[in-house]
């Protein structure tokens, strides 16, 4: 069995699953509200509208709850920070050799850009959505502008998230990482080599079975922990 390395903690996977589910509900109800042929089929405006509003309002909640988790916060910091290597990664996109300069940490530059764009877009949709929710008494807000931004944001989000799904469909090991939490070491070395370099060089040995008389941890494992800290 190929050696596997831990990539996503249970908290991160739960945040991903809940956010994905809420996004799907948002998208389907949005289609039922504003794509005319579907709207004519579905109708039931009050029900669909209520589900859309609440799923939209709840969309950022899994990520906010995820802030309790150390690994999730650490990944947010990684997504926020762009290094010189990320610029080389982006420059590599224009290179005829697809692998030149494509060294990445836990997240590559494309994933960082995607995540940042998504976070901003969700906040814009949340803000405009709330303005649309309160239908009366906001006379100072140009409603045509709010509708325009919410509409354009919906189309853009649908396209960008579809891209995310297509990239995942093309890479079973990346999907396995989000589903099970761990990835094959060889995959991590190819796609996220800089990240793998920071992880311990060898797996932590299993606990000793000789009655627990040996030292609490093997020397090379604690050495690896020092390297990573």
């Amino acid at each position: 069995m190929p050696e596997r390395v831990l990539r996503f903690s249970p908290a991160e996977r739960a945040v991903h699953r809940a956010t994905g589910l809420l996004f799907l509900v948002c998208l389907l109800t949005a289609v039922a509200l504003y794509v005319a042929p579907v709207a004519q089929l579905v109708g039931r405006r009050l029900l669909v509208e209520t589900v859309h509003e609440w799923s939209g309002l709840l969309l950022p909640v899994p990520a906010l709850l995820g802030l309790w988790s150390g690994p999730f916060r650490a990944d947010l910091r990684r997504l926020d920070r762009f290094t010189a290597q990320d610029r080389r990664w982006l420059a590599g996109l224009r290179s005829p050799d697809p692998h030149r300069g494509r060294l990445a940490g836990k997240f590559n530059a494309g994933q960082k850009l995607w995540a940042s764009w998504l976070a901003g877009a969700v906040l814009v949709m949340l803000g405009t959505g709330l303005l649309l929710w309160f239908k009366f008494g906001l006379g100072f807000v140009p409603r045509a502008g709010v509708v325009l931004v919410h509409d354009a944001g919906a189309y853009a989000l649908a396209v960008v998230v579809a891209g995310h799904v297509l990239k995942a469909l093309a890479d079973p090991e990346a999907r396995r990482g989000m589903r099970t939490g761990s990835v094959r070491r060889s995959w991590a070395a190819r796609e996220h080599g800089l990240w793998l370099d920071q992880k311990p060089k060898s797996p932590i040995p299993p606990p000793p079975y000789d009655g627990g008389s040996s030292s609490p941890s093997a020397p090379h494992a604690s050495q690896a922990a020092d390297d990573a800290a």
């Binding site: 916060r73 997504l79 920070r81 762009f82 940490g105 990240w195 992880k199």
Partner: peptide, 28 residues
């Protein structure tokens, strides 16, 4: 076998500077 390793929490991926906070600028 799953390599639990140590979470490299908060560490920049590359050695050297932590990098610029581009992500939050994109959000803004």
């Amino acid at each position: 076998m799953i390599d639990k390793g140590m979470p490299d929490a908060g560490m920049p991926d590359a050695t050297g500077p932590a990098g610029r906070p581009v992500g939050r600028r994109i959000v803004l």
